[in-house]
Amino acid sequence: MTATARTPSGTDTRSVTTADQSARDARRAGRRGGPDRSAGRSPAKTILVTAILAVVAVYFLVPAYWVVIAATKTTEDLFATNGFWFGSTFALWDNLSAVLSYDGGVFLRWFANSVLYAGVGALLATYFAAAGGYALAKYVFRGRDTIFGLVLGGVLVPGTATALPLFLLFSQLGIANTYWSVLLPSLVSPFGLFLCRIYANATVDTSLIEAGRIDGASELRIFHTLGLRIMTPALVTVFLFQLVGIWNNYFLPLVMLSDSNLFPITLGLNNWRSQVDRLPEFYELTTGGVLLSIIPLAIAMVVLQRFWRGGLTEGSVKA
């Protein structure tokens, strides 16, 4: 996909690069310092653009802000005071300790389940997608195109379309309502394999593999030491996509699990929220739980967002 995007630019780029090698090196150094992608800039434009971005940021941050405020309120204040500002009593710590201690600390159990499903699932899924994508990109073997076609079809199959039949299948295998029923489907990322194949194609140089072979390394060793390392930027992306995908998944665990001890945090919190009509104290449990569940993901998003890009190792052989 990226290849098709780049082709039109190919000819001009090459003529430029062959024309003046040293100029290109200078530019590459400049690119590392900070990209200058604009044709020109002015202070007025900077203010306008930044103002637009700031207004949009308010939209994206308001619900998060609201939940922070709501989590500090008592149930009475929640309804009686302005939602965008603190209430008369600061009840954050009471609320959070109620969240953590309710029902023998079931919230922590849900949280740990989510960490297990998402962490283990994403790690293994990334490794499997990397191995598969590398194999499809770097080897010619019978059935390669068939496999790739099937996986590509898999990218387009709605996840929820397979969840119901998967439940029927897992019920027959006797693993519905177990950790496995959520973990096993999380280990597969067709989109990850697709990304890894593209990335391996573009960055893992065949001459490097050849060099490894001449040194007597086995194919698996070449993949593990060389392929995985060069593919790291793509792997981080695949890992993050899969991590968030599993963490956010709701339909699959909803279909598979009936034992609330196996619930991930999404299912658990919705369970609490569905009780607010009968028991208003669940408002505070839910908002406090939502706040606690957002914090680690928010930190992860901010810290990891710098890794959400590809193309970091281009030129690993040439250098």
Binding site: T50, A54, F60, L61, N248, I265, N270, V290, M301
Partner: peptide, 27 residues
Amino acid sequence: ASARWPGFFRAAYFLPYGIPGVIATIL
């Protein structure tokens, strides 16, 4: 190049993606 603090804005816009649909809906 006209955008100030692109890192902050990118993180702010991207943040909701880390919030599960269910929890976003509860919110």
